[in-house]
Computed example of a mutant assay.
Amino acid sequence: MTSLPSLPSDLPFEGIVFDLDGTLIDSVPDLALALNALLREEGLPPVEPAQVPGFVGQGARILVGKAMTAVGRPVADEGAGAAELDRLHDRFVALYEAKPVEGTRPYDGAEAFLRALHARGVRLGVCTNKPHGATLGVLEALGLAALFDAVVGAGLIPERKPDPAPLRLALERMGIAPEQAVMVGDTPYDVGAARAAGVRTILVDFGYSPVPPAEVGADILVSSYAEMPAALARLRSVTKPA
């Protein structure tokens, strides 16, 4: 069994909420498989896996819309186009949920970090724009579900990040106040939700951010989970967002 990383003796928070795709897990292999299965059914050319990170972050509906645009068949999300996008979205989610972890894996060190936090009694949550059912399925399949006190995926409530409502719901279910929480993510949507909720932020720079991670405005930027213990210690000097 992999040894757990050492954490600071005095953690300056009670709970951490994680984004999922691009933060805890690299899900591009399975997202690409499901997207290409959908495109194949529609008689369209495939997308390259390298394109998929640019589609991720705002939920499955927007992911599908971006993929359709990328292959030359854009679908307007209004009028008849909205119904077509609904159909494509629902089919994509069904294809994805059927095989969610063929190639998906936690990032190096992510699982050990989660287990170290859990062993210390830190409350853990997931707040993601990934569909809620798919989120639960991925966490179960990867053996991570039992580590989390709250999981909030898209569809549980109407709002999605960067709206703070999903993050606030996760914190409510975890039983912690915003000033006692940290959000770990990889995109501006994570930092935007955290800022609006009054939560401190750590951003990983290896995820799916549509802009350079250093420009997102997180409190702390890390390049690996090996850097997380030191980042947690640095949070003592970070004040709660106004």
Results as ranks from 00 to 15, higher is better:
E42M: 12
E42T: 10
E42C: 08
G43C: 07
G43Q: 09
G43N: 07
G43T: 08
G43E: 04
G43P: 04
L44G: 11
L44I: 08
L44E: 13
P45L: 04
P45Y: 05
P46Y: 06
P46M: 06
P46H: 09
P46V: 04
P46S: 09
V47L: 03
P49G: 03
P49S: 04
A50K: 06
A50T: 12
Q51Y: 05
Q51N: 06
Q51L: 09
V52D: 01
V52F: 09
V52I: 13
V52N: 05
V52A: 10
V52G: 03
V52W: 06
P53D: 01
P53E: 02
G54R: 08
F55R: 04
F55I: 04
V56S: 06
V56L: 11
V56N: 04
V56M: 12
V56W: 05
V56G: 07
V56R: 05
V56D: 02
G57K: 15
G57L: 11
G57R: 14
Q58W: 10
Q58M: 15
G59V: 08
G59I: 13
G59R: 14
G59A: 12
G59P: 12
G59M: 12
A60R: 00
A60W: 00
A60H: 00
A60Y: 01
A60M: 03
A60E: 03
I62V: 15
I62D: 09
I62G: 01
L63Q: 05
L63P: 00
L63R: 02
V64F: 05
V64Q: 08
G65D: 02
G65H: 10
G65K: 07
K66E: 02
K66L: 11
A67T: 05
A67V: 05
A67I: 01
M68T: 06
M68L: 15
M68Y: 05
T69P: 00
T69H: 09
T69V: 03
T69L: 02
T69Q: 14
A70F: 01
A70V: 03
A70C: 10
A70K: 07
A70R: 06
V71N: 07
V71S: 08
V71H: 08
V71D: 00
V71C: 09
G72Q: 13
G72I: 14
G72L: 11
R73V: 12
R73I: 06
R73D: 09
P74F: 09
P74M: 14
P74L: 10
P74R: 10
V75G: 07
V75M: 07
V75P: 03
A76T: 14
A76P: 06
D77P: 07
D77G: 07
E78P: 00
E78G: 05
G79W: 06
G79C: 08
G79R: 06
G79Y: 07
A80S: 15
A80W: 08
A80L: 14
A82L: 12
A82T: 05
A82F: 09
A82D: 10
A82K: 15
A83C: 02
A83I: 04
A83S: 13
A83V: 10
E84M: 10
E84Q: 13
E84S: 13
L85R: 13
L85Y: 11
D86C: 11
D86N: 15
R87Q: 12
